[in-house]
């Protein structure tokens, strides 16, 4: 049975579903990376995802236009981000608590809207799988990587883009500076508030897309609390990835691949109790985290509100 794991079908299956599972994590965790690099811990990711998931689903079902769904999920996430930014940047609220507040808000509001506007679980025709010409015909590799829906591709493309923005642009420089030493950035004329508004709203926008990627691309239904805390795992992945996009990618893939591996382990009847199997991604992630954590340092100003004297 264990040898079945090495069959081509199974390997392809594991990799293909790992890549799909990683998609929402990538959007949410990359967005969160921007926020944390600028010093803001947003624990409301899951709530923003739920709002994005619902909005995208609702708009897609009412208009039939999936891209309009994505756009409205971005708007919904951005609005949540805007509110979070106001509360944490202007009102200097404790970030952890307000994040939880926004999580509960998103959880409740998405459910309320769902109950009032739709009322029942239904399906939507989501983004189809795109077969990339030529590439998708490559045996094995094509099946794994190049027969996914467009949101999966975008999610992976986001990683180098995020890396580039953070490390090669003046904006990225400002974001990193604000997260490490906002006083220093301020003294050089960088608006800490503006940078944090930007990153929090960007994070909300990407969280919205993360939710949309579930409701109109991967699962194609909306259900109350459908993210089931996935947004919190995304936050953990940012720590796992040491606040670096490539690290986040590694974490998301590790977590997702082990998750799809355990699905196959159960399907193949490998005698591991299901309770243990489902713990595998978490256990492995924690082990890797413990092994690597001492070498990385969080942005110094993470969770610290910035207030100029006067």
């Amino acid at each position: 049975m264990i040898s079945d794991l090495l069959s081509m079908t199974v390997l392809v299956g594991i990799l293909a579903s790992g890549i799909r599972l990683a998609t929402p994590y990538l959007y949410a965790a990359i967005g969160e990376t921007f926020g944390q690099r600028s010093g803001v811990l947003n624990l409301g990711v899951d709530g923003q995802m739920l709002m994005g998931a619902f909005t995208a689903f609702y708009v897609a079902i009412k208009t039939g236009n999936l891209w309009l769904g994505i756009l409205s999920a971005m708007v919904a996430g951005a609005l949540m981000g805007l509110a979070m930014a106001f509360v944490t940047v202007n009102l200097h609220a404790e970030q952890g608590i307000s994040g939880i507040g926004f999580y509960l808000f998103g959880l409740g509001l998405s459910d309320l809207l769902f109950q009032k506007l739709l009322g029942t679980v239904e399906t939507v025709k989501g983004f189809p799988k795109i077969q990339i010409p030529f590439l998708s015909d490559i045996p094995v590799v094509g099946e794994i990587f190049f027969r996914q829906n467009v949101l999966v591709y975008i999610a992976f493309a986001l990683v180098p883009v995020a890396w580039f923005i953070l490390n090669k642009t003046t904006l990225g420089l400002k974001i990193r500076a604000v997260g490490e030493n906002p006083e220093a950035a301020d003294s050089l004329g960088v608006s800490v508030a503006r940078i944090r508004y930007f990153t929090i709203i960007l994070g909300g926008t990407l969280s919205g897309v993360a939710g949309a990627s579930m409701s109109i691309a991967l699962v194609n239904v909306f259900q109350q609390n459908m993210t089931s805390g996935l947004g919190f795992i995304a936050v953990a992945l940012v720590y796992f990835g040491a606040w670096r996009p490539w690290g986040v990618l590694a974490g998301a893939l590790l977590f997702s691949l082990v998750n799809s591996l355990q699905l196959w382990i159960q399907v193949l009847g490998i005698p591991i109790p299901s309770d243990i199997a489902v713990m595998m991604p978490y256990i492995l992630t924690i082990l890797v985290l413990v092994a690597t954590v001492s070498r990385v340092r969080a942005p110094s100003a993470l969770t610290k509100p910035f207030e100029r004297g006067d």
Partner: peptide
């Protein structure tokens, strides 16, 4: 009959992936 317990009552994404796995199998 392949049985898969996903460890969650609410994780629709994982449930979906579990179903994909079954279909692939």
């Amino acid at each position: 009959v392949n049985v898969n317990y996903i460890g969650s009552f609410s994780d629709v994404a994982l449930a979906s992936e579990a179903a994909s796995t079954h279909v692939a199998a």
